[in-house]
């Protein structure tokens, strides 16, 4: 089935790109593989029938956040020093592997109540109804711009020349 093939290709690409982010020595190449990982995650959203979220992922992550990260890499001139590990490399590897094993064990031994209802096909109207409609998530929607405004002002204050 096409969806399964798409999932496996996107999963392999995404995990490989994520590994490249933490294993590559070159910071700039790590940032570029992070962009590839974001694109693979957008494809994963498409296989989950989340079309609106896939577009938002490409706009926000691939379009904006990756540009910010690459800009910060260029402004800090840390590219020559590469991306070394600290003294905690082995314990960190152990903690991450332990976390992975525990989570996979837990989720394989849980009896998920999977619904057989087919998913909504265009999700955009339903998401708009939930975000702005009666009894929806209108309060978080109102709080989110305050958070973004605070983040913008904070970023400007932090990087301003004294």
């Amino acid at each position: 089935m096409g969806l399964d093939v798409a999932f496996w290709i996107l999963a392999v690409v995404g995990v490989t790109a994520a590994l490249a982010v933490v294993l590559l020595g070159d910071v700039f190449r790590a940032a570029l593989s992070l962009v590839l990982c974001f694109l693979a995650v957008a494809g994963i959203y498409l296989t989950l029938n989340a079309d609106f979220l896939a577009v938002v992922q490409i706009l926000v992550y691939v379009g904006a956040i990756s540009v910010l990260i690459i800009l910060a890499i260029m402004l800090t001139r840390e590219v020559q020093r590469g991306s070394p590990s600290n003294r905690l490399r082995i314990p960190a590897l152990f903690v991450a592997a332990l976390f992975l094993v525990v989570v996979i064990y837990a989720l394989l031994n849980t009896n998920w109540q999977i619904s057989s209802v087919p998913p909504l096909e265009p999700t955009t109207p339903a998401i708009a109804g939930l975000l702005f409609g009666e009894g929806g998530f209108i309060l978080p929607v109102e709080i989110a711009p305050i958070l973004l405004l605070a983040a913008i002002i904070g970023a400007i204050v932090l990087v301003r020349e004294k």
């Binding site: 995990v15 994520a18 982010v21 933490v22 990982c37 070394p84 590990s85 314990p91 960190a92």
Partner: peptide, 14 residues
């Protein structure tokens, strides 16, 4: 993906 990110956040210096 979360475990890879966890390893990177704990083990990297940059």
């Amino acid at each position: 993906l979360f475990a890879i990110g966890l390893y990177g956040a704990l083990a990297k210096r940059n």
